[in-house]
């Protein structure tokens, strides 16, 4: 038996919006640790890892580990029927082939339940080793989204370079080239507006902008984003979900042939 009650139901809607452009079907894994997901996009270029820790739920009951295969677009269709202030409870019985989403309005005058069919999804979990990154950039998530959107109107790929000077995002296309440099800036009114660069050594990697733009669908989940870079490793783009966990995106770099 599984019963997860999330007071901030809108958070689950945002989580779905952050994943469904990238992933069609995925297994949600439920354990004592929390509600999690790991899935690759259909071309196996990007991977998304979600964790919503059990402590972040108002009520969390998961009698045994359970993996529930869901179509994310269908799940999103159901969650869109919840009000933004609604409390969402996810329920499933052992051995059933469906999951129920219950929506309660804040003053309890409206209660709805939506039952969704589960699906069998073959997916293998990948081991993501802990790595030391050559550079870690933390910046406002809205700024990162703006840069990815702006550059994708010029080119298809971005070179992200971190040096002592800052982090540089560069692209080139048929109409011309673009470079955006963000310097470290800790002297801001609010900490979430800061750009912080921790660099062990300079690093420069090339990525497809299409995927980075998909990652920025997570922007409503967090004011800041952390970009971890190392040569010969996928970039990690992480959005922390306050008091709950994170959504992390891994993107394999492009290399010169």
């Amino acid at each position: 038996m599984l019963e997860l009650r999330l007071v901030q139901g809108s958070l689950l809607k945002k989580v779905l919006d952050a994943m469904r452009e990238l992933v069609n079907d995925a297994n949600f894994d439920c354990s004592a640790t929390g509600f999690s997901l790991q899935a690759m996009d259909s071309s196996h270029v990007a991977l998304v890892a979600l964790l919503l820790r059990s402590e972040g739920f108002e009520h969390y009951r998961c009698d045994r580990n359970l993996s529930m295969g869901m179509n994310l677009n269908n799940m999103s269709k159901m969650l869109r029927c919840a009000g933004n202030d609604d409390i969402i409870t996810i329920k499933a019985d052992d051995g059933t082939d469906s999951v129920t989403f219950m929506f309660e309005s804040p003053n309890q005058d409206k209660i709805a339940d939506f039952e969704m069919k589960l699906m069998d999804i073959d997916s293998e979990h990948l081991g993501i080793p802990d790595a030391e990154y050559q550079a870690i950039v933390r910046m406002p998530s809205s700024e990162f989204a703006r840069i990815c959107k702006d550059l994708s109107s010029i080119g298809d790929t971005v070179v992200i370079s971190v040096t002592k000077e800052g982090v540089k995002f560069s692209t080139a296309g048929d109409i011309g080239t673009a470079n955006i440099v963000c310097r470290q800036n800790k002297t801001v009114d609010k900490p979430e507006e800061a750009t912080i660069i921790e660099m062990q050594e300079p690093v420069s990697l090339t990525f497809a902008l299409r995927y980075l733009n998909s990652f920025t669908k997570a922007t409503p989940l967090s004011d800041t984003v952390t970009i971890s870079l190392s040569s010969e490793l996928p970039v990690v783009v992480e959005y922390k979900i306050a008091e709950m966990g994170y959504i992390r995106y891994y993107l394999a770099p492009k290399i010169e042939e």
């Binding site: 690759m40 071309s43 196996h44 270029v45 990007a46 991977l47 293998e124 979990h125 990948l126 081991g127 993501i128 080793p129 790929t157 090339t206 497809a208 490793l233 996928p234 891994y250 394999a252 770099p253 492009k254 290399i255 010169e256 042939e257």
Partner: peptide, 14 residues
């Protein structure tokens, strides 16, 4: 033109 790599090149199945 740079070639896109896949995730499985970096992360192995558990």
């Amino acid at each position: 033109k740079p070639k896109q790599q896949v995730i499985s090149r970096f992360f192995a199945p558990k």
